[in-house]
Design a protein around this nucleic acid. Structure first.
Length: 366
DNA sequence: TCTGGGGTCCTAGGACCC
DNA sequence: TCTGGGGTCCTAGGACCC
């Protein structure tokens, strides 16, 4: 989906269309000047990052993941809207259901992304036997875009390619509302010039290390010595990188998978001190456990592994976990176990984040 | 003026077992 | 008496993704 959260908000506030808008932050801060309907980034203060920016806002240099304070410097007049995840989830369900009605082999990749296996659909259509399968695939993709637009008034971008790796890259090439067909033969001209960062699985760390080896584009990666890559990135990741650069990817489209863990975490408005703010922290800690327990309840899971996450004021993050004898979804049991984990971390400086996780999930015995 | 919240997967060492 | 080899589970950290 194109600029998903922001696009959903523009349906609600059509008067903002064409303006730079960012989604992010927490509660609506009280800095709107009198007579102004929408809060802008100007004078924003507090923690929080941009989750989505409209294309007009991106043109000003802001992007998702950027701190709102920094974004305010670049785009003080951009409108800031708080995220409304319930609403985004509604639209997410609608667009996914719409796609499934056209092409049922859908893999969930988060709230605004999916993979679709069109193989059966394209190949089984005997009437289309005389047609180029790529042309048939293009037709199906165009139909999907149209159906999604009719159902949601939102646009999406699609990459039609031989596999998931290439589709992920291709879907990004002509955003928004792009429909990109990319065959294996197109890899040298269309994929190789791109920076390695465009490969799903090569993040900021790996691309920085590749840069030190003089490898910046996917093409340079494709022509690198595989032994060198294995030497620097390990046998598994190094070999995978090389294959990825050649557009090789054998992963199937997985239409269903069970969750592995459920967690809740919160970053405080201001850092809290373990001693000075003990009461308050304890309250937040318990709340997190209650929320996780209710998430487990609602989704129908119990878990054996209880985890604690803590981020200090210097952004260093530590985790502790323990495994229970029997799985649980009881808030008090989770709180007890997480509390025991907390005793194993140093509490000698202020913390900015606290989180609770339950893993090793199973469905409860009836 | 730093850096959200929800996830997955991988690695690596140690315990423990046969 | 100075020590194999394989397997699984547990824990901590980190990279990466949406």
């Amino acid at each position: 989906m194109d600029a998903f959260y922001a696009s959903v908000e523009l349906l609600r506030y059509p008067e903002l269309r064409g303006k730079p808008v960012v989604i992010g932050g927490r509660r609506r801060a009280a800095n709107a000047s009198p007579g102004e309907t929408f809060q802008t980034l100007r004078n924003y203060s507090g923690r929080g990052v941009i989750t989505t920016a409209t294309y007009e806002a991106r043109a000003l240099g802001v992007h998702s993941g950027m701190g709102l304070m920094k974004a305010a410097q670049l785009a003080p007049d951009a409108v800031l809207l708080p995220a409304d995840f319930d609403e985004y989830r509604r639209y997410s369900r609608t667009f996914k259901d719409t796609v499934r009605a056209v092409a049922p082999e859908v893999e969930d990749r988060g709230i605004d992304e999916i993979y679709i296996d069109l193989t059966a659909l394209v190949m089984s259509d005997a009437a289309g036997a005389a047609l180029d399968p790529w042309e048939r695939a293009r037709d199906v993709a165009a139909r999907i875009q149209q159906a999604v637009h009719e159902a949601t008034q939102l646009s999406c971008s699609i990459g039609v390619t031989p596999n998931k790796l290439l589709s992920k890259i291709a879907s990004d090439l002509e955003k928004p509302a792009g429909l990109t067909i990319l065959r294996e033969a197109d890899i040298p001209t269309r994929i190789w010039p791109l920076p390695v960062r465009k490969v799903n699985g090569i993040g900021p760390k790996a691309s920085a290390r590749l840069a030190t080896l003089g490898i910046r584009t996917i093409g340079e990666l494709a022509h690198a010595d595989p032994a060198l890559l294995v030497e620097h990135f390990g046998k598994s990741y190094g070999a995978w990188m090389f294959d990825a650069a050649h557009g090789r990817d054998e992963r199937t489209v997985v239409t269903y998978s069970e969750p592995k863990s459920i967690s809740r975490e919160t970053t405080f408005e201001d850092d809290l001190h373990p001693v000075r703010d003990r009461e308050w922290l304890s309250r937040i800690f318990t709340d997190l456990c209650v929320q996780v327990a209710s998430d487990l309840q609602r989704k129908g899971y119990v878990g054996r592994k209880i985890g604690l996450k803590l981020r200090y004021d210097n952004f260093k993050t530590v985790t502790r976990d323990c495994t229970l004898d029997a799985p649980t979804r009881d808030a008090q049991a989770i709180r007890r176990a997480a509390g025991a984990c907390l005793k194993r971390v140093a509490l000698d400086r202020s913390i900015r984040l606290l989180g609770v996780r339950v893993g090793a999930l199973t469905r409860p015995a009836p």
